[in-house]
Write a protein that binds this DNA or RNA. Structure first.
Length: 280
DNA sequence: AAAGCACCCTGTACGC
DNA sequence: TGCGTACAGGGTGCTT
């Protein structure tokens, strides 16, 4: 599923081809993908527009429009943005097509329909409440420390909360916790300074590695870049989706538990809970 | 503030 | 071969 690094990889691919290109024609095949906008208004505003900047915030991809406003995509679990040739036929799960001048097409495919497309005057309406960007300079151990302060929530659900940190999904949250040697059930306020520094570094490290590898494509193939190509980071995963397999560090079987309705993968030996935390 | 739940949706994996 | 069912996931919204 597309998380920060997958969206960032897409952003780079798409920016190189689409910035400055004029939208010639819009086809909304599944209106359910649109938020706060009828297919008619959507097409009317977009046709003739072009994006002068393509940015990303968390898992959101933002086309800054030349005439004002923003076109924003969230890929949900299975959304893909694909560059194609002009007039290319829609696939079974194609929800939206933008035909550009210059014989290029951008297709939004989304089998599970969890993705969303918004056309807004101000992007802040969509991304305004997101937490800090973990790869940005503004994210540091000090910042993480103040974010964690007073929070009694367990670490893993907190990392998945986009208002806490933007862009982490289930894969990279599990991987970061493994890298930092922290148990997903640990209470946020119980982390000491050293653990916070480790977690901060682990988040950046895991994301940077995934970015270098052009994202993670799991066996469900729910992620591909703008040309449908798979990422390579799945080979680097230490715990996610590896329940029962040996921990790469110590050989103990990786465990999978459910935390607030989401799967969490960890090594019970490398990511131990301290005794006093178990009682809480 | 935390946690639990239902909901959205469908491809896949499983048991029979 | 095929049917039914459970499950996975991110985000939102509601309730306790």
């Amino acid at each position: 599923m597309p998380e920060l690094t997958e969206v960032e990889t897409l952003r780079r691919d798409l920016a190189a081809k689409l910035v400055g290109q004029r939208v010639r024609e819009v086809h909304v095949l599944w209106p359910g993908s649109l938020r706060w906008c009828s297919p008619q208004d959507f097409a009317r505003y977009l046709e003739g527009q072009s994006a002068d900047v393509l940015s990303r915030r968390g898992k959101y991809l933002i086309f800054g429009l030349q005439g004002g406003g923003a076109l924003i995509f969230h890929l949900g679990m299975s959304g893909r943005l694909l560059l194609g040739a002009q007039g290319e036929e829609p696939g079974k799960h194609t929800r939206l097509i933008l035909e550009f001048d210059g014989q290029r097409q951008l297709r939004f495919d989304d089998p599970r329909k969890f993705g969303r497309v918004c056309l807004v005057r101000d992007a802040e309406k969509v991304v305004g409440k997101l937490g800090p960007e973990p790869l940005g300079n503004e994210f540091s151990a000090e910042v993480l420390c103040s974010l964690l302060e007073g929070r009694s929530r367990r670490l893993k659900p907190l990392l998945l909360n986009q208002q806490f940190i933007a862009g982490l999904g289930n894969i990279y949250a599990d991987e970061a916790l493994f890298e930092a040697g922290l148990n997903p059930c640990m209470r946020a306020c119980d982390l000491d300074k050293g653990e916070i520094a480790r977690l901060c570094a682990a988040i950046k490290e895991v994301l940077e590695r995934a970015l270098h590898n052009r994202g993670t494509t799991l066996s469900d193939r729910s992620y591909g870049d703008a040309y449908g190509r798979e990422g390579r980071n799945q080979e680097q995963l230490r715990v996610y989706g590896r329940a029962g397999q040996p921990c790469p560090r110590c050989g103990t079987a990786i465990q999978r538990i459910t935390l607030e309705g989401r799967g969490a993968h960890f090594c019970p030996r490398c990511q131990r809970l301290k005794k006093e935390e178990k009682r809480g």
